[in-house]
Nucleic acid binder design. Structure first.
Lengths: 107, 107
DNA sequence: TGGCTACATATAGAGAGCCTACATGTAGAC
DNA sequence: GTCTACATGTAGGCTCTCTATATGTAGCCA
């Protein structure tokens, strides 16, 4: 998967993966890999800064937990994040529609 | 349309628009606008450098023409570009499939 | 005891592409 | 004489994703 293709869609992916259950960074990466059938293997250098950015934006909230001696920062979706995710889904839908129409026009 | 969303897809858009007829930069911008129903309004500062990049890559070839006293640089798809476009279409298809599955998983 | 793997987070710096803003020029309408 | 449409191009900035590196715990195995 070409990294550039993900530009501007990473936020939606991250928000959607914590929609129904709070997850920590490492688990988020695994969830993305599983949901995509292995196609998405996002490096930690992408995910951790992105999560912090989304928290700064108010879409996520985090708290520390210690599980089995290991520290985790667990992220959950805020109300604002939930609204954002809905908007991202709509945007994704119209995005694919527009690009699809240009790429494969039925003449 | 969020500019970042287009990242990595611009090449496919440009190649697809000159697939069946050579066009010059200005006309390419108009064609993108028309094919997208007005949703895509790509600035010249994006298109002209991108076209040059695609020519350097061997996917497009250009020649100058003068029409009505105005100079145009007309771009046509090369054989290599045609192959690239086919690849981009396949990549687009799998890209939307993967992101769509993550964004809206049917549980 | 030492080494390896899985788990877990984080930052610095590079790379690349799309954008804004600006520069330049012709043709035609009013 | 001014404005709009047509037409191309560059410089610099912005932002996101990636690679590479750093740090540390827990558990397994030899």
């Amino acid at each position: 998967m070409n990294p550039d293709a993900l530009r501007g869609h990473m936020d939606a992916l991250l928000l959607s993966v914590v929609e129904h259950e709070p997850l920590h960074g490492y688990a988020i990466i695994e969830a993305l890999r599983e949901r995509s059938g292995g196609a998405l293997d996002v490096p930690t250098g992408t995910v951790y800064p992105a999560l912090r950015r989304l928290e700064r934006a108010g879409f996520l909230a985090s708290e520390w937990a210690t599980v089995g001696g290991r520290k985790r920062r667990t992220y959950r979706l805020t109300d604002s994040g939930r609204a954002e995710l809905a908007g991202e889904r709509t945007a994704w839908s119209s995005f694919t529609s527009v690009i699809g129409r240009v790429l494969n026009p039925q003449t």
